[in-house]
Design a protein around this nucleic acid. Structure first.
Lengths: 339, 339
DNA sequence: TTGTATGCGTTATCAA
DNA sequence: TTGATAACGCATACAA
């Protein structure tokens, strides 16, 4: 019985060996009433001995449900889709629902292929994960299964979308710094070609405003999502406004670059300058010196929520519109309060 | 026709609307001979109009093949499993085969659940991705489908395993440094609890030996897979052997720490000291200052190869044993040759 | 060229 | 308590 050489056992095999009909065997194994205990035990026993696994295809064909969902992503890094997938598995219960993961690699043709393949496999629902916060083209509303858009909302208001509240997340970051006693707070933003960049900038400004503070340096610095930009911007910042005592960075990569230059220039962190990032990407935050405080987007929770929404929609309870999830601060060494 | 509200169209629907029998409709859509052109066109037309997607469940039930594979991982980061999955999708052709991704989270109970679920879904094969190079327990040879173990080999010689040649990869790294004219080469290794650590150390020593060199500092430094360890080890190294002119690090994280301390102590990279990492994890290598040369494990290729092996095995052509893939150097700014 | 009938593996209904 | 049978959606062998 080497791998692949043996046909999978069917209910018929079990029934025959147990000396009953398939109907009885089915009832016995599914715990349905109306089967003698002794018979049930015999059937169960045989099933176990043959390592019988009921054919989910046949079941699904009959039930009209497969217990599978498609997760459509375009994020090669897996930075977003994997935590989200964990959340999905979690919420559904790994045993009951399996996830098809498909990567469209940013190509809409390939995406359509995947959608077709998933639909023909009769997934119960689709989760579409984007890697940018700008709205993405809807898959349309003619699909035979519900769809939840995650991270990137759909551009159609009748779809269900689940997104991160970047504005509030950035406000949280600023509030965290303000609570720590910081007065001269600067913001190094990411790529201005991203909506997330502007949302975070907006959130930062609003929170500063609310705290009666204004931006150190008078303006926000826009650049890219790289450490190199973090380094360059920090140098500029220190030249323009040497008295800066806190920096909110638009991403953890930027923050890493920022930390490096601050250290190079002899600033103590967090005593002289506090630094906070965004994303809470552990390989970056935990390895930083000192460890980097960051805004966590709670992607797993996002995945769990998506699974919930999908589950409800499968049961015909759609909740169209965009739902926002809030972020949370994960505090580490780069922002110990002054006091 | 909102999401989820409409039943999927079946071949029967198409046949009825086209005014033919299901058999004729089937033949027409599958390009089988024996159907009048005019009829075929009518059927195809109707199918298109109804957005008909043949039910893969029914097809599979009949064919005994599902065109799906299960990818079993235990690597939450996705550092390994995602590139491997890309390779798999690639090799199979995204349209023909879909991948169930399951994360066991290092728990063997959960793993068994996933295996059961996948088998009951009648996947055509299983790919088991580990995150360490030590052999892992075999799923056994009684399974009705072929299994390929990737990155972590199975502990049973009759299984098919696909692994990285860490020994040769480390040798490559050393050769790269030697070719660049380096004479006093040190190695900062990772966590001694990992077999990969010792394999890489062995490969490094062999290559040094072959080049007639010996380890700068006389010994290998073992620690952990962190930047902090990279920093600490580099400090020790520079104290013990200030003349070191190249450092091979057991991982990119270690290398990042190493680079940082070298810069802190005023060493020019790569002029004074060349540094090479292992993993080629882009978020780390490309953002480093200077950008980090690293050993790439070609995980996508590993995935493609796994898909191939699986595909062959599904067609009853098993190739048991452990196959090794070689690594390759990706050169960046941290190792420009001296000359 | 077209249609009818059968089977894939399962569950549910109903008759025995 | 058990078993025969009809679905589920499709492809195919065979009859018309």
């Amino acid at each position: 019985m080497a791998n692949g050489s043996s046909r999978a056992t069917t209910l018929t095999d079990v029934a025959r060996l147990a000396g009953v009909s398939v109907a009885t065997a089915s009832k016995a194994l599914n715990g349905r009433a109306g089967v003698r205990t002794e018979t049930r035990e015999r059937v169960v026993d045989v099933a176990k001995r043959l390592a019988f696994q009921p054919n989910a295809l046949a079941k699904s064909l009959l039930a009209g449900r497969t217990g599978t969902v498609g997760l459509l992503t375009s994020d090669m890094e897996g930075r977003f889709s994997l935590p989200i997938m964990m959340g999905v598995e979690d919420a559904f219960g790994a045993a009951r629902t399996s996830v098809f993961l498909c990567d469209a690699r940013g190509d809409s043709i390939r995406e359509q292929h995947h959608v077709d393949a998933l639909l023909s496999r009769r997934v119960d629902g689709l989760i579409v994960v984007g890697s940018r916060t700008e709205p993405r083209p809807s898959l349309g509303r003619g699909l035979p299964v519900p769809v939840v858009y995650v991270y990137s909302p759909s551009d159609h208001p009748d779809d269900m979308s689940l997104v991160i509240d970047n504005v509030a997340g950035a406000s949280l970051a600023i509030q965290h710094l303000v609570t720590g006693g910081r007065k001269r707070i600067a913001h190094i933003a990411g790529d201005p070609g991203y909506q997330a960049t502007h949302d975070r900038a907006r959130g930062a400004e609003a929170a500063l405003d609310a705290a009666g503070l204004s931006l150190a340096c008078g303006r926000i610095h826009y650049g890219s999502w790289t450490e190199a930009w973090g380094r360059g911007a920090t140098r500029m910042l220190l030249a323009d406004e040497p008295a800066v005592d806190a920096i909110f960075c638009g991403s953890d990569q930027i923050a890493r670059g920022c930390l490096e230059v601050l250290r190079d220039q002899g600033r103590e962190i967090p005593d002289d300058v506090a630094v906070i990032g965004f994303d809470n990407w552990e390989v970056l935050t935990v390895n930083a010196r000192p460890e980097l405080t960051s805004v966590d987007m709670r992607l797993e929770e996002l995945g769990r929520r998506a699974a919930q929404r999908l589950y409800e929609a499968i049961d015909e309870r759609m909740t169209p519109g965009v739902e926002m999830l809030h972020c949370q601060i994960v505090q580490r060494g780069s922002t110990i309060p002054l006091n």
